[in-house]
Design a protein around this nucleic acid. Structure first.
Length: 161
DNA sequence: GCCAACGTTGGC
DNA sequence: GCCAACGTTGGC
C-alpha cells in the first residue's frame, strides 16, 4: 500500500540559498546539503520521501518566515559535501562507506505572493502546536502536521487577497 | 551585534 | 556517565 504523503518544514538562510535561488536553479531543483544535526539527519535519511511537500522557511532573515512551497523529488542519500575538505560543512567523521550525513533533493513548487512572517504564524491558533513556534526550537528539518500545512496554505491564499 | 537555547565535545 | 566549556542557531 502506498505511503501517504507527509509534510515538512525546511529552514534555509536566504543569504545562503533563498526560495528565489531554488526557483532559478537548474530544473528548479537542488540537493538539500549541509544538515549537520542528528535529529534532522534521521528525518532526511529515514522519513522524508519523494512526493512529500515542504514549507520553505527563511531563517536568519528580516523578517523570518515561510516563503513558499517545495516538494521532495528524491529520497535520502548520502550528503557527499561532508566528504569535501574544501566544503564549509566538511566532516571527517563521515566516510563514503559509512556516511554520517544525508540529504534529499527538493524542487521548487511555488513562492507565496508575500512571505508569511514568523510573528503572523504565532498569531494563528491552528498553529499553536507547531514545532517551529516552540520556544528554543532550532531544528532545521521538522515534520509538519497536515492540518498545519493546510492552515499555512490557507493563510497564504488569504494574504494574497 | 547580542544573547538565550540547544547540541557536541572531551576531561575526569 | 557526568558536566563544564565551547560552538552554533536564529530571533530580536
Amino acid at each position: 500500500m502506498a505511503r501517504s504523503r507527509h509534510y515538512w518544514l525546511l529552514k534555509s538562510e536566504p543569504d545562503c540559498f533563498s526560495i528565489d535561488d531554488l526557483q532559478q536553479a537548474p530544473d528548479q531543483t537542488t540537493y538539500w546539503d549541509g544538515v549537520r544535526n542528528y535529529q534532522a539527519r534521521n528525518f532526511l535519511r529515514d522519513s522524508i520521501k519523494q512526493g512529500d511537500r515542504v514549507l520553505y522557511y527563511h531563517s536568519n532573515a528580516k523578517p523570518p518566515g515561510v516563503a513558499g512551497v517545495a516538494k521532495v523529488v528524491r529520497d535520502g542519500y548520502p550528503d557527499f559535501t561532508a566528504w569535501d575538505p574544501k566544503d564549509a560543512h566538511f566532516d571527517p567523521k563521515s566516510k563514503a562507506d559509512d556516511p554520517t550525513w544525508y540529504m534529499v533533493d527538493v524542487a521548487f513548487e511555488r513562492k507565496f505572493a508575500q512571505l508569511l512572517p514568523l510573528d503572523l504564524l504565532r498569531q494563528q491558533s491552528e498553529l499553536a502546536d507547531m514545532e517551529l513556534l516552540r520556544k528554543g526550537s532550532r531544528l532545521s528539518v521538522q515534520p509538519v502536521a497536515k492540518a498545519e500545512f493546510d492552515a499555512i496554505l490557507k493563510l497564504a491564499r488569504r494574504q494574497a487577497g
